[in-house]
Design a protein around this nucleic acid. Structure first.
Lengths: 181, 181
DNA sequence: TGGCGATGTCAACAGCTGTTGGCCTACAGT
DNA sequence: ACTGTAGGCCAACAGCTGTTGACATCGCCA
């Protein structure tokens, strides 16, 4: 046989991630994804059931936060901002979630889960007052997601023009205050 | 005649703003909008030409920024955050732009124009160094749009739970630093 | 060699979309 | 009373969508 089913599943997933990331949920059509993957649309259904199943597989993201307890306390803000920028630039999953989470309630729920499961505990481990941990994680999310929104999605010119270092210098102190002050 | 054309045009616009705000561009259908307005879909075409024309009419927003030169310099951050929160809660236009700007390039362009035309000059008038004004406006946008995204669109629980005063207290100093320090 | 399961294609379905043109109807002006 | 016109409806179009089931082909195994 020309290809194993695993190869095809993987090719579909790659194409799906690209389409979902650049077009959002509604405009990313199964036909376009199948065409990108070089197969028939019906194969997508065979391997992923339906469009929602394909989306669920494509929108599985891991933020891979480092252990902030291992960095000096006064560096946690800058460290987190730098990590988030890196993560954003080499994982389409972030873009998928943001693009779709804004119009698709299922994706919004997924985003809430990810932040509750990945950012929440990280901040809690760092925080002296556990009652404030959720609030601090939420504040951090507003700044960090706002940067992603303006830079990678809306492409506001002055935000696109900033270098990685400038962003870390400006946002680092903000996140530092939200996290640990 | 039962209604004037102006009445009908206005009714269509109201329905369109609600649908665009809650569903985004793709999922807000002309049929649904017409049904909300209590008329036939073809009337929408008669009065607004096509879907893009209707969207352009619905996405016309005015941020109505106050003159920040009139408030004490150390209060500009808190003032702008408070104003933005108010503006967001009583104008669907903001939600329309955010929901659609994320998947629709035309709406993203509109959003860029609005920030360039409304937030940019405001910050420039405030800034000592004109060369930095665009950067500072961009930074402000990241924080303020990030808050709107997390609170009104993604509805992250800890961000939704915050009171207006808490948000002003936390985001005020951030925006103050971006604007004026 | 024969067959069987895996891999893949084709054509079609039912539903929805934006959009169009023709038709109706009720009122204002004469 | 007659007519013009503005406001509104209806039916249909062409295109796209997710999804389905029947059919084809290839290569392994008995």
């Amino acid at each position: 046989m020309r290809r194993t089913s695993e190869d095809t599943k993987a090719a579909i997933l790659v194409a799906a991630r690209e389409r979902f990331a650049s077009d959002g949920y509604e405009r990313a059509t199964i036909r376009a994804i199948a065409s990108d993957a070089g197969i028939d649309p019906s194969m997508v259904m065979r391997y992923y059931g339906n469009k929602d199943g394909l989306f669920a597989a494509a929108a599985d993201v891991d933020l891979r936060f480092p252990d902030l307890a291992a960095v000096p306390r006064e560096e946690v803000g800058r460290t987190l901002v730098a990590h988030f920028l890196d993560r954003w630039e080499d994982d389409e999953g972030m873009m998928i979630l943001l693009r779709t989470g804004v119009t698709n309630e299922g994706a919004a729920e997924r985003m809430r889960e990810i932040f509750a499961a990945q950012l929440g505990p990280l901040v809690a481990r760092l925080s002296a007052d556990p009652a404030q941990a959720a609030l601090r994680a939420g504040l951090t999310a507003t700044q960090v997601l706002g940067m992603a929104l303006c830079r990678y999605v809306l492409r506001l010119p002055p935000v696109v023009a900033m270098s990685r270092e400038e962003i870390v210098d400006w946002l680092g102190p903000t996140v530092q205050r939200y996290l640990a002050e």
